[in-house]
Simulated assay, not measured.
Amino acid sequence: MGDLLGVAVLGAGHMGADHIRRLDRVVGGARVAAVADPDTARAEAALAGVSGASVHTDPESALDAPGVEAVLIASPGPAHEEALLAAFARGLPVLCEKPMVPDSAGALRVVEVEARLGRRLAQIGFMRRYDAEYLRLKELLDGGTLGRPLMLHCVHRNVSSPPGFTSAMLVNSSVSHEIDAARWLLGQELTAVTVLRPASSAVAPEGLVDPQFVLFETDRGVLVDVEVFVNCGFGYQVRCEAVCEGGSARVGDGHTMVVTSAGGAREEVAQDYLVRFADAYDREVRAWVDATRRGRVTGPSAWDGYAASVVAEAGVRALESGRRTDVRLAPRPDLYAPLSR
């Protein structure tokens, strides 16, 4: 590879545009070589001030563009499977935003293709694994100073839901981050899920079940609860508290600025995930670029993406049925390391 890793970015929406900015101005060792988006005006706007990148409406033409050595997928979830398989066919390493593939059947197809290749090419964008607070919590739990984990209490709140957001998406879009974070923090698989439906908020769009209370069980008896509330109105909040035999630890409270003026004080609350997890996204993409330039693939794997899809699907079934629902994973290929603490 040259001095700079040439990256094709698929998708120039909110997330894709932020990654284009990050690759061009924040992360060293990489450049944007191509961008694909059906809306060429949006792609060109995202590339304002970026030189040397070609614009495409078709993802595969972007993958074949001169200078492309790696792929960052930030397109809508339903387009991910085709893009991942196209990257695999070209031997290109990939950073794919979550969900890897929205449905578990498609996610398993991606896992099976990569396993047949015999080497990892995909890293999945669960950026909380790169957040400084989550990393400290992971280190604390792995060190064992608080004893065996018993419970995780999680909060996931958004200011408002975008148009078209459905009750199922509270689980398979919002809570998918908690699904991966719980698996990673605990080193345990999630084996069952129950979704409780409190009275919906009066400000939630008509027909949207919001908030929801999601309860996961793990294969070693830990309970993980998630309050997900996507129309809370005041800000974007993510918190996680681990309760262990010898103590507890919580992250997510201190990620704020306190402003004092006019005889009073107030805490600022981030308004979206790109603000709250800006540093985590920077760390994630920097780690991916550095590893790719060394010919390695690290971070969350395609198997982690598949597991999150399976658990999320079980969560949606639990939401619809009102019953506790088991999670059943396919056999894990040898390519992927088992979870560990």
Rank of each mutant, 00 (worst) to 15 (best):
L140Y: 01
G16M: 00
E139L: 15
E69I: 01
W303H: 07
T194Y: 03
T325K: 06
D3V: 09
L140W: 01
L47M: 11
D326W: 11
R317M: 01
G6C: 11
P300M: 09
E139R: 15
A168Y: 02
A308S: 00
D24Y: 11
T145D: 08
D142Y: 02
S340T: 04
V251F: 09
R128F: 15
L141I: 04
V230M: 03
G263Y: 12
V195T: 04
S161D: 06
A242K: 02
P211L: 03
P198E: 06
D334K: 11
A30N: 02
Y336Q: 13
A278L: 10
L150G: 13
S321E: 09
E227Y: 13
L146R: 05
E245Y: 07
V35D: 04
I73F: 13
R286T: 10
A41Q: 07
E267W: 13
L85V: 12
A48E: 04
V171G: 00
V230R: 03
H14C: 08
L329M: 02
A70E: 05
V327S: 05
V310W: 00
R266H: 09
L121S: 14
R157D: 06
F229Y: 12
L140C: 04
T57Q: 04
V7Y: 05
L121C: 13
D272R: 14
T218A: 10
F126W: 03
E81S: 13
G246V: 07
R22D: 10
A278T: 07
R116K: 15
V159D: 11
Q212N: 04
I124E: 11
N172K: 08
S167F: 02
L85N: 14
G254R: 09
P93D: 14
D290R: 06
G305S: 11
A337E: 15
